[in-house]
Design a protein around this nucleic acid. Structure first.
Lengths: 193, 193
DNA sequence: ATAACAATGTACCAAGCGGTACATACGGGG
DNA sequence: CCCCGTATGTACCGCTTGGTACATTGTTAT
């Protein structure tokens, strides 16, 4: 049994790390915070992540990438009906961001200098997401240029909805904005299909 | 000459402080950063802002509030043509955020735990902005409920455009998203007027 | 039972943090 | 010209930071 020889592996610490980075940002998430969030001492943390904070954040980003690929990008390709795929995406995203209470780590990384180290990953995350949505719209006969524009509108709009919801402390605002985005994309599919 | 008796007053330090907070966030903007950004030593900084970092940020927020009231909210009320007022707002906002290169301090304050102290101001900033846009749309005969929804769409969309633009490092994305928002609001005015 | 090794807690480090104290430099009003 | 309050640089404070070192534990294979 080589695989499960350890009681705790770094994988199982990722969700707690992600939540800590989410709530405090990269700067604000001190090792004390990360230690309390995971229940792991500094010794264990540095055993699993020899590269320190930066490696922890990198692992969290990898985890998020994997999750998005599975839960968002792949369905956008696989589901035969583009309208259904888009609708599902908004549902899944709303749940993931807990109607805007939960911050998008990657989006907020791009906002200040602390995240510059991860700039390439941040860019790739958004580019992949926009690309996936645009390709899905194209499958629904939306012209390529218009598809990209709608995809940008959607991803940008979701990020804005998170900012607005956190600022107002009003989850209903998230629902309103996201529903409007959903309608806009579905309308585009209707008109083109 | 009572007014100009001092060589440097706290007012003149505000732009540099704002830029520092903008680029590094509240946590990331250490006193060393703020000192270098303003060219003032710690002595002077604490002479002007006895309350330390928190008072500096509060002063910056006051300054921003004042600027928005003058450059955004008042024109939204005063300009007789709602369509012109909305168009101007998007122009002014695009310039202010430098097509998305510049972060919205207040929006990003809401995103992590460091900004919790300022939660009330953050909420007020967004509520006022949405209110001003909504009232302007109502002046153009857009029904109240729809006006609020469009106003939310605009403010939320602008915040999202900033996030997206910073993430992609692509100012053109900001222009595309914001133009789309502008059209959406002007269309609503057209349909209702 | 024991050897080998991963996992962990603790002590420690230099550097940086926000903030304070204070002696000095400065400049306008008497 | 001097005086007094403001402005400023510097030294310093206690504390936290990210990170390291290491001795100890716990587990597993032999």
């Amino acid at each position: 049994m080589r695989a499960k020889r350890v009681l705790t592996d770094r994988e199982s610490a990722l969700p707690a790390l992600a939540e800590a980075f989410r709530e405090h940002g990269y700067d604000g998430a001190s090792l004390a915070v990360l230690s309390k969030a995971t229940g792991l001492g500094k010794g264990s943390l540095y055993n699993f992540f020899p590269g320190g904070k930066e490696e922890m954040m990198a692992a969290v980003l990898d985890d998020i990438d994997r999750w998005f690929a599975d839960a968002i990008f792949r369905p956008l390709e696989d589901i035969s009906s583009p309208a259904k795929a888009i609708g599902l995406m908004f549902d899944v995203v709303s749940a993931y961001f807990q109607s805007g209470r939960r911050v998008c780590i990657i989006g907020s990384l791009g906002l200040n200098a602390a995240g510059e180290v991860f700039a390439a990953r941040v860019r790739q995350y958004f580019a992949r997401w926009i690309g996936a949505v645009a390709r899905c719209l194209e499958r629904g006969s939306v012209p390529p240029a218009l598809a990209v524009e709608h995809a940008e509108e959607a991803i940008s709009g979701i990020q804005g909805a998170i900012v607005l919801t956190r600022a107002l402390g009003d989850e209903a605002a998230f629902a309103r904005v996201v529903d409007r985005l959903r309608s806009s994309l579905l309308d585009a599919l209707d008109r083109s299909g």
